[in-house]
Design a protein around this nucleic acid. Structure first.
Lengths: 224, 224
DNA sequence: ACCTGAACACCGTTCAAGT
DNA sequence: ACCTGAACACCGTTCAAGT
């Protein structure tokens, strides 16, 4: 198996020698098999057949290496998915200006649009929120909320609520769609509607940070 | 009536079971292997080792039958999980009196408490919202909202948002917990806090049903 | 009708052995 | 250091054959 060079995607060339220490700069460069390349191909496969359809064997074949070789770079499939998820999140766009709620909504729509192109990744994300959230994105979102005047506790609540809502929607979307009860347009509307609902709830906290809502539970007092 | 109203599925979906009831007597009786029993044992296993740990083989062993025999009663593992999920939802308790938001919150806490005892089931639920939601529970929740004066559209939005938030939280909970950043108590608080946030957003819609929030997006106008 | 035993077609993961 | 070939230990699912 010396050939490799996946079908379809030209890009032949015998990149392989390239052991040449061009300098002591980056060692990624032309490495036989970079994490970057692995993630790129994995994304392609997931886009086509979903996370469950992604096989370490199929990935290896498409990379032009053996199964064992792939495992030399990525310890487990889970680790691979973490890399993929982070890579995806890096593409989330956040408007640099505008009202906080509009920026937030836009960011969430961006996440949703991105994630729905990779079946099964939303499920993985919602099961691994800590591992997959890139610090950069996380900080950016927190910044928006703190700038808007949210108290720390509320920041976490808003972040968690949005995250789980978005991943949940993306996870359950296919089910709703295939059930025939909702088409794509209605799905999109339901998604944004829920987002608005959520943001409305958040808005209450900045506009009246210390006012109790008339029926709001004062605390968690299950068993005092 | 888009979201809810479970698909017209009277029984067109052809359950292979239910071959005309044997008159007035229960057909469970001494049946070698009832669905009820299968679900019961499956739940036990899931409680111990999670959905992924549940194996059709293990289930068969614990039922005292062969693998093929189990498959004679349950077509696929997925179908089994649907039965399990529905069985779980049947135990959700909804307060019969109280303010709508308190009843709703209580119901969601009930779902959360129930679901977190069965690792992996929340993930399955959020991926199969339509299939697993028992009509009875669905109707009860809708009733609470309509009684509270919610317009139809908002009912769907509130339902979807809550469902995905709850399943998402339950799905991601273990990750947050094992990361060491949140203990059980803090998790519970975060969960309820998010729920309050969500309900606050819902409250806006009944209290001021036709007033536009000051920065609310008027429509979905992405393109076209 | 229900059940069994055995197989099929996969998986993720590991590892001695090569270069 | 990187890669290969082959295996291991599972899975879900199917099915001819029994009773």
């Amino acid at each position: 198996m010396t050939v490799g060079a996946a079908p379809g995607r030209g890009q032949s060339s015998g990149r392989r020698r390239s052991r040449i220490p061009t300098s002591r700069s980056h060692q990624i460069d032309n490495a036989a098999l970079s994490d970057r390349e692995i993630v790129r191909v994995a994304r392609e496969i997931i886009a086509k057949v979903g996370v469950d359809g992604l096989t370490m064997r199929q990935l290896s074949t498409e990379l032009g290496v053996s199964l064992g070789s792939t495992y030399h770079h990525v310890p487990t499939k889970r680790d691979l998915l973490v890399l993929v998820a982070r890579d995806l999140f890096d593409e989330v766009t956040i408007p640099s200006k505008g009202k906080w709620d509009e920026r937030l909504k836009s960011a969430m729509v961006s996440v949703s649009d991105l994630v729905e192109r990779y079946p099964g990744i939303a499920t993985f994300m919602s099961a691994n929120p800590v591992e997959i959230m890139p610090i950069k994105l996380y900080r950016a979102l927190v910044q928006i909320l703190t700038d808007a005047g949210f108290p720390v506790d509320s920041v976490n609540a808003v972040m968690a609520t949005m995250f789980f809502y978005v991943t949940g929607t993306s996870t359950g979307g296919p089910s709703l769609a295939s059930s025939g009860m909702l088409d794509d347009v209605e799905m999109k509307r339901l998604f944004e509607d829920g987002l608005d609902l959520l943001l409305a709830g958040a808005r209450v906290r900045v506009e009246q940070p210390r006012r109790r809502t008339r029926s709001g539970a004062p605390r968690s007092r299950q068993r005092g």
